[in-house]
Design a protein around this nucleic acid. Structure first.
Length: 298
DNA sequence: AAGCCGTGGCT
DNA sequence: TAGCCAAGGCT
């Protein structure tokens, strides 16, 4: 470890010790299950929206087996308006897998975690690092942005995680397990609070003096236009409306009530079929629908 | 391997 | 205001 890297680590770790947010899944008493639930909820969803739902979930389902014992539809209902509700279904399936294959305990290796539904490269690394103290690089959108600026000297990271980014992240990981664990969360926090996507607060940054992007004069992004996601009129909007009706209803809902949320019949029925195919909705009898009430083989 | 999958706050 | 963006995963 060079002195330069050592100084970088020290500055970031000291900054984190001073500025970190008090989040419940970071506390020492947070269980691996609590960490896993938080990581899945935080996929593409801001911390402030996750906080109350995470509290409710962990109170109601303190262990994976508690969630597995429920109908999957209850997970979808308790998901509320976090978005991407398939994550609720996957978390339920993960709880079931943990109960059945791992004796009810969240597995602690990246390889085992990756086998769980809804757990990809990022989430597996995050749970292994934060819940089990493993020395693995945790590379989320915050880390990618911080390292794109700090090391590569560009404003934005690539559209998706590259091999080069993995290598950079691993090369920056401190040698000791204890420092590595804090480093991962500290870089994420730096990206969330200081090295933000839109208006980075470089004057508050502990490593501004070593930042390649700052040294370059903070050049604006150059390259092909970055693609946003359409929303109005898309299937996602229709699916969201259909599911909202079902979430807010106690029992099965008549098909007629679902017709009210979207006029275009072709699109509406396609979306309803899609929700059923995804396991988010279950047909009941001839003309009713509900959230999924039983386990489902998929 | 691009495109799809929710939701809401911010600029 | 209309994008942009938020601790991604899956196909």
């Amino acid at each position: 470890m060079t002195e330069q890297a050592d100084a970088l680590h020290r500055r970031v770790l000291e900054w984190y010790a001073r500025e970190q947010r008090d989040l419940p899944w970071r506390r020492p008493d947070a269980s691996p299950w609590g960490v896993l639930v938080s990581e899945v909820m935080l996929q593409q969803t801001p911390v402030v929206r996750v906080l109350p739902v995470w509290q409710e979930w962990l109170t109601r389902w303190p262990t994976p087996a508690d969630l597995a014992a429920e109908a999957p539809g209850e997970a979808v209902r308790a998901w509320g308006r976090l978005g991407y509700p398939r994550r609720a279904l996957r978390l339920h399936a993960a709880g079931t897998a943990i109960a059945e294959r791992h004796g009810g305990r969240v597995p602690g290796t990246v390889a085992e975690l990756r086998e769980l539904p809804g757990v990809g490269e990022y989430t597996a690394a995050a749970v292994a690092a934060f819940a089990f103290g493993r020395r693995v690089a945790v590379v989320d959108t915050n880390v990618r942005r911080v390292e794109a600026r700090l090391v590569t000297g560009v404003q934005h990271a690539a559209p998706s995680l590259t091999t080069a980014e993995r290598q950079v992240a691993e090369s920056l990981l401190p040698q000791s397990d204890s420092d590595a664990k804090v480093w991962n969360v500290a870089v994420m926090e730096l990206g969330a609070l200081v090295c933000t996507a839109r208006a980075p607060r470089c004057s508050d940054c502990p490593v501004e003096s070593s930042c390649a992007w700052v040294a370059n004069g903070r050049p604006a992004y150059v390259g092909p236009a970055r693609r946003g996601q359409a929303w109005a009129g898309t299937d996602r909007q229709v699916r969201g409306r259909l599911l909202q009706v079902l979430r807010e209803s106690d029992g099965p809902v008549p098909h007629d009530r679902l017709r009210e949320v979207w006029d275009d019949e072709v699109q509406r029925e396609r979306c309803l079929d899609g929700l059923v195919a995804d396991g988010l909705v279950e047909p009941v009898g001839e003309a009713e629908f509900s959230l999924p009430r039983a386990g489902r083989a998929r």
